[in-house]
Design a protein around this nucleic acid. Sequence first.
DNA 1: TTGATCTTGACCTTTACTGACCAAACGAAT
DNA 2: ATTCGTTTGGTCAGTAAAGGTCAAGATCAA
Lengths: 153, 153
Amino acid sequence: MRMSDAIAAYILHMMETSSDGSAELQRNELAGEIGCVPSQINYVLSSRFTPQQGYLVESRRGGGGYIRVSRIRLAPEVSMLTHVVNSIGDTLVASAAQAIVQNLFDGGFLTEQAARTIAAAVSDRAYHQIPVGQRDRVRADMMKYMLTAATMS
Amino acid sequence: MRMSDAIAAYILHMMETSSDGSAELQRNELAGEIGCVPSQINYVLSSRFTPQQGYLVESRRGGGGYIRVSRIRLAPEVSMLTHVVNSIGDTLVASAAQAIVQNLFDGGFLTEQAARTIAAAVSDRAYHQIPVGQRDRVRADMMKYMLTAATMS
DNA sequence: TTGATCTTGACCTTTACTGACCAAACGAAT
DNA sequence: ATTCGTTTGGTCAGTAAAGGTCAAGATCAA
């Protein structure tokens, strides 16, 4: 198992077991327990706990410093999908697209069938006929059209 | 025996003997064992483990990367979708795509949200960045991937 | 012969990991 | 209040470790 996955799992577990659903940790201590360099914690936070994936990360340096990770509170349905659509730029990489779909599904904004369908439509394998340099643009378009349509249900 | 057949057989064997019916492999390692170049694994996956043939391929790059191949479980009630997927050729015009979606929705094979989503993804508007002559090919691909994904649960 | 399928290798993109160096917050001494 | 050492976390560039793409050539089958 990748070390990054172990770190992510650890943080997720902390979030699940804590009373308020957030994880509060100390960077050096966690790095010591898991056995990695401290900066890898930052790598995991920035690659797997981004706002687009539905997480909020706050931190403080100095004595008594901490890192707190919590799930972003989800807004009402229509405004959530609209907000996500508006946040998508002209291009969208496959991994970011998958994260968006996962987050919307977790938040209950997409049915399982719709989520699976969208995930398939934005996966890299669906674009093999399209030149590599253009895929992310088409994907962004596709995602916006689909989420907009999903909103109207 | 062709090398591609050997690779396909190897993957199939992995799937049969694994506990969950899926094969998880590392591209370079498998290429080394079988004695072919790594990229041939991709060729085999894209020619013999397509959604139309009933397989789902997922992969991840980077350290600790992997390729996972699994067989799509087909429930009796979704044989309709399977049949539709198989009946789609290499190209698919927008009007035919809309008709297919409408029929599947009417038949109760798609939820309303999924139907709206798919309809958006195969509508002409979604393809304005793609050269006209290529749209129907991409659309056919997109439709097959989405319907295949929609059959899974 | 000719079109489809197979094979290969050079080059590319993404993801993971590490460590040196940086920046901020705290607290005690002045 | 200022200074300064200590304790945190932050950044970034480099390296390594995967898988992906593409086009050219080889082989096979009709």
